[in-house]
Nucleic acid binder design. Structure first.
Lengths: 250, 250
DNA sequence: CGCCTATTTGATCTGATTCAAACAATGTGG
DNA sequence: CCACATTGTTTGAATCAGATCAAATAGGCG
């Protein structure tokens, strides 16, 4: 693990992400960029906080790919969310003191730690940022609900297609999905842990999606070859990401 | 549907629920009880808000039992949460303008509508209530995560046992779980829609739980006969409900 | 090259679904 | 008060989506 400050470009993803869901003044944006942060470089499969911890910092994803997960008594893992750069996966720790799940990297990642106190002070001084953060956690919850629908009522085919659509949109929000190509740096087994499927079945399902020429996925890079048909098989409706309802700034 | 104001006893569930998760001053409690509300009596299976709606009110459960749900293109229903008296199932509509799911009753219920404007004004005047509401939505999200674990990685047995434990605790918070007996006014088919199971399989699983003498469920009333063994089969860990971490008031 | 991890393929098994029908409880109208 | 409709629960049998077990292949990398 190495330490350093984060280049502006990396820190801007936070602003981009929030601006995709809320209205921010130039002053708000400056306050976000000025947050006092300590950057950390982490290898893949490194835990950042664990179940039972009482974190004193929030964690902003600068680069890479994180997930939240739990391991059951039987040793099975359930991944409950993925996190792209600019997101704050443990914002809830501001108000929920004890972690009820783990947060870790899936790929080599750089994260920024920000003290709870600094975040709370920023919210106090900039109420619009507080509202944006609340909105961000509510969208988080909307994504959990959507996953509930996937795990409860969609086929393996539909689940995986739906997740790919979702990640495409989320990378799009931070301008990291050119030509429908974006990072998806996880193993098939990890994809199974997220979608409630075995690694073997994930593999077979992916083979189908590939042979239908809906997607291409190699070396951790996903390309959506036919967005319309993928969206159709996934029954993907992006309403739950609540992107378009924020007043358009700029 | 009939209109009337709500008796104090019904309105107090809201205070009980929030006090179980956050610290409130007597002044805060008074502000909550003074919220201007319009009570409505609703039959079972009545929608309150629907996907795509842009509600202008929040809805407080006074009596009865609500759920949030979505229906897939294939006509399958997924229930994503249940709501007991004193909860505000659509608090998120304060910040997420378009509903991405439906909210409706499962049993005959009385709900109170409170204008968004009134809620926002109360939050403005009583920041501690705002924090409590934020905390409540974060606990909502924690429950969604727990359901993700259930649907993704637990057996039918485990899922149903886990849900029963959860509802027992949530009714306990509003003093409605005497002798481990509390309302569970839904059909087996609705339980299946929540846990991602068919009605037939729910039935067989319930027969097992009954023959193991873990539960008794009749006429919409659930009794947990052996909490320890039920908890064990469910692998139930109540951390995710974040009850004990609030400073204990009174 | 040789090691390690990830992907792919095959064979078999099983938890849960689906279809179908009986049964119970409750309510409704004549 | 009974006939009958309606809705929910229970049971049986057949089927299937996805899990599990096992082994072969393919990459990536020190």
């Amino acid at each position: 693990m190495s330490r350093s400050s984060a280049p502006l470009a990396e820190r801007r993803h936070l602003v981009e992400n929030l601006r995709a869901i809320a209205e921010l003044s130039p002053d708000d944006e400056k306050a976000l960029l000025d947050l006092p942060l300590r950057a950390r470089d982490l290898a893949a499969d490194t835990d950042i906080v664990r179940e039972g911890d009482r974190p004193t910092d929030c964690c902003v994803v600068l680069t890479g790919f994180l997930c939240r997960y739990r391991v059951t008594a039987g040793g099975k893992r359930q991944i409950m969310s993925f996190h792209v750069p600019g997101e704050i996966p443990d914002l809830q720790s501001l108000y929920l003191k004890v972690m009820d799940h783990n947060l870790g990297t899936l790929a080599p990642s750089r994260v920024a730690l920000v003290a709870h106190e600094a975040v709370l002070e920023t919210i106090r001084l900039h109420p619009r940022i507080g509202a944006a953060f609340w909105r961000a956690t509510l969208i988080d919850a909307a994504i959990f609900r959507e996953w509930t629908v996937s795990l409860g009522r969609r086929s393996a085919h539909g689940r995986i297609a739906h997740l790919i659509c979702e990640l495409g949109m989320r990378f799009g929000a931070i301008k990291m999905a050119d030509n429908n190509t974006f990072p998806m740096p996880m193993t098939q087994s990890e994809l199974g842990d997220a979608m409630g499927l075995s690694a073997v079945h994930v593999n077979r399902t992916l083979m189908e999606l590939r042979s239908e020429e809906l997607i291409d996925w190699r070396n951790g890079v996903m390309t959506i070859l036919d967005w319309d048909r993928l969206k159709a098989t996934a029954e993907f409706d992006p309403t739950y990401l609540h992107r378009d309802q924020a007043p358009v700034t700029r």
